[in-house]
Design a protein around this nucleic acid. Structure first.
Length: 485
RNA sequence: CGGAGUGUGGCUCAGUUUGGUAGAGCGCUGCGUUCGGGACGCAGAGGCCCGGGGUUCGAAUCCCCGCACUCCGACCA
């Protein structure tokens, strides 16, 4: 009864099974993951069961990205799950970066292995060894490979999708004849990610370069797309690395050039992970649960028939289902739950559009459409549905991106001192822009005082002042700071 | 890796203080009535009380030792 009362009193919050965002954002996140049937916990810490609905989102992400990778000339391959210890150790910075979080296989059956095998935390070393074998001539270049795989990193703190011990991702690994080509590739793929996030996931991102401190172990340059969650925390949503010839030297990947001299190749790697699902939740979700942008939504429209025992309703619903099936991903929920229950269920799962059809509608030749993003109800003639539904879905897609962008802008500030960075973040968590001298010491200080890290040096940067906001020395770049997941 | 908390039907928990026949709500199954914002009635099914050792006539409850998970801080996609 108390629950019911809450339900009635607070019209905005339609689902009482989910903790309100303002009450406890972390709990809200966990509630959404579970109530939207995205994932379940497993018996191994940090490993989750991705349920059909969550996996369907991942499959949509995969399909779209994969076609964009193919369109830019990449081929898919599959590398082994295991890496011999000696192979992992070949590149010094790389192994040092990953050593603390690798899982090791020491036994095969009852027998102890002569060499430990690492469960891949990433596959640079595997690709490198393979490239050393197959690249001989400039005619073999470039090699543009990608793999869809799982990787394991022994994390201390885990959260579903955001940081799990095992996660799914894609890792692109390419080899080029020149540094210029490698740099071009690195940026090309960063742009693929950025466009994908904005067009498909309706998540606005900031493109930029990581500082020395934050760059990938073994890379010469790391580029990133950074997004801002609803609670003002930053999320690194994808990275693209230019390795230069670091790995090529360590793994002796050389090609014979046109002038008959051996040269090292220049390599890149780039990846996005199931973390993107976490971003979707935290960028678009609300107190009623998940809100999915139509393009990534496994179900774009759900049909809820009302009073199915009355003649004609179910038949009409089925007819509409058949018509719309050709245009959008549609589900007819003809289960014997109550309509109200179904409304809540599909809201929690973030279905962008709901279609209600009851006896009144059948009589009038109309249906009621309800938007998940703003709750708006529209009465539409059945004859117009095939045209209207795609239009409304597009509006929702655009609206979500605009809303997220507005939120990010409202949570982005400028600062001119260390104290101001901290003050801004404490007052209103988000992105803080400052000038920076380029010294690691200043980053460490921001970490210590403001509990924030440098997210990136954005490509689109401004000149805020001549001096570093932290130490006052001449500034070299603008940096965006934030508290990150 | 520190600090705190929690482990009892599928889920959320009560029961533990003070040892004495394992409970509730939700969910699940069947039948019927309902159906425009989480419906209702009746009848059911379902538990090695996290694990291992003690103490006791008797342990979910008391004592040791583990393990797991959650949340908060240092490292990371």
């Amino acid at each position: 009864m108390g629950r019911r009362a809450l339900f009635m009193a607070k019209n905005k919050k339609l689902v009482e099974a989910i903790t309100a965002m303002d009450t406890d954002f972390a709990q809200w996140y966990t509630d959404v993951v579970k109530k939207a049937d995205l994932a379940d916990y497993s018996s191994v810490k940090g490993c989750m069961i991705i349920r059909p609905y969550g996996y369907a989102i991942w499959e949509n992400i995969q399909a779209e990205l994969d076609s964009r990778f193919k369109a830019t000339g990449h081929e898919n391959v599959y590398m082994p799950l295991f890496i011999p210890e000696s192979l992992l150790n070949k590149e010094k910075d790389h192994v040092e970066g990953f050593a603390p979080e690798v899982a090791w296989v020491t036994h095969g059956g009852e027998e102890e292995l002569t060499e430990k095998l690492c469960v891949r935390p990433t596959s640079e070393t595997l690709f490198c060894q393979h490239y050393a074998n197959i690249i001989g001539s400039y005619r073999d270049l470039p090699k543009l490979y990608n793999q869809w795989a799982n990787v394991v990193r022994w994390e201390k703190t885990t959260r579903p999708f955001l940081r799990t011990t095992e996660f799914l991702w894609q890792e692109g690994h390419t080899a080029h004849a020149t540094m210029e080509e490698a740099e071009e590739e690195t940026l090309r793929m960063l742009n693929v990610y950025a466009d994908f996030c904005q067009d498909f996931l309706a998540i606005p991102v900031i493109k930029g370069q990581k500082t020395e401190k934050e760059k990938f172990a073994g890379a010469q340059a790391t580029y990133t797309i950074e997004s801002l969650m609803h609670d003002g925390q930053a999320l690194q949503s994808g990275t693209s690395h230019n390795f230069g010839d670091n790995f090529a030297r360590a793994f002796n990947i050389r090609y014979l050039d046109k002038d008959n001299t051996h040269r090292y190749v220049y390599q890149t790697s780039w990846g996005v992970t199931t973390r993107l699902i976490g971003a979707l939740i935290m960028v678009h979700g609300d107190d009623s649960g998940l809100v999915l942008p139509p393009r990534v939504a496994p179900i774009q429209l759900v049909i809820v028939p009302i009073a199915t025992h009355k003649g004609g309703v179910l038949e009409k619903a089925q007819e509409i289902f058949t018509t719309l099936k050709a245009k959008v991903r549609v589900k007819l929920d003809d289960s014997d739950k109550n309509p109200g229950w179904k409304f809540s269920e599909h809201e929690m799962r973030g279905v962008p559009l709901r279609l209600e059809i009851g006896p009144r509608d059948v009589e009038n030749g109309t249906v009621v459409l309800v938007r998940r993003d703003n709750g708006e109800k529209l009465t539409v003639n059945i004859a117009e549905l095939a045209q209207k539904v795609p239009e409304i879905l597009q509006e929702i897609q655009d609206g979500l991106l605009a809303k997220a962008l507005k939120h990010r802008e409202e949570h982005t500030s400028k600062a001119y001192s260390l104290a101001e960075i901290k003050e801004n973040l404490d007052k209103k968590p988000g992105f803080v822009k400052t000038m920076w001298c380029g010294d690691r010491a200043c980053e460490d200080q921001v970490k210590e005082v403001a509990r924030a890290s440098s997210r990136c040096m954005p490509f689109e940067s401004e000149h805020l002042s001549d001096t570093c906001a932290i130490c006052g020395k001449p500034a070299k770049a603008m940096v965006i700071w934030g508290r990150a997941y």
